[in-house]
Amino acid sequence: MKSKMEISFISIAIFFTLILFMAVGSLFILPSFQGFIDAIQSEEMVEAFKLTIYTAAISSVLVMLVAIPTAYSLSRYSFPLKTLIKSILDLPMAFPEIVLGLALLMLFGNNLLGGFLEKFGIQIVFTVTGVIVAQFFVAFPFAVRILYSTFNYIDTRYEFVSRSLGYSEFETFRSVTLPLSKDGIFASGVVTIARCIGTFVAVLFLGGGTFMKTETLPITLYLNLSFGNVDMAISAGIVLVIIAFVAIVVLEKYGKEKAL
């Protein structure tokens, strides 16, 4: 027989999951099927989808390339200001994305780094590059956090043994540490892709949210909702949900295969 606590806790879990499911499900109910088909075939939606995938692919790869050495150095090495660096990296996860978007706009605007980069012909603000930079900085702290926990979890004695058998530090990292971190790297990759695809405020601030130019799917949703074009807005939402769902299914499937 189930205890009172067990029944209460399971009820809470089911009730709030159900509300969340209904909220997500309502997206699929509201637009007409024809409205949805028309919306996803519209030029704006196709362009937004292509730009979202393109920018998210680049920013995700960049995030992983930078996050892996960053997380490994935080996990394994001692160096000055390590605690401060860790705190700074955690900061964007704690404060609202709008603050991060504003901060990035200040940095890459004309006054600070933006002016300097412009001398070399690199324009960040209100460009596709700006979209990628925004996605990068939103996803980077999350990726580092997951990878840092992953590397911490790996017993350093695997690396000790490898080195005692003749492998250099980098060879050991490549042939022992990275394969042992596979699950964490994969999880971090999925979260990074999801964050990059779903980022809205920072992308709006740095990319400018220009119609058909720097318009990613979250911005399509926002712009169309502002104009009262509900079918387009909801269809953009559905496409984002489908992308997230595919990412989660892939993660679940991969996780199960690993467990077996």
């Binding site: 017993d155 695997y158 000790f160 043994v161 080195r163 005692s164 058998l165 250099s168 042992l180």
Partner: peptide
């Protein structure tokens, strides 16, 4: 010298076998 240049091997109490390799791959690693 770095550990890899010393010619010294180490065996631990809890084996520390590489879990992503089979027995052959573990033995042949070095």
């Amino acid at each position: 010298l770095n550990p890899e240049d010393r010619g010294i091997s180490i065996v631990y109490q809890d084996y520390v076998l590489f879990p992503h390799m089979n027995v052959f791959e573990n033995i042949s690693y070095g």
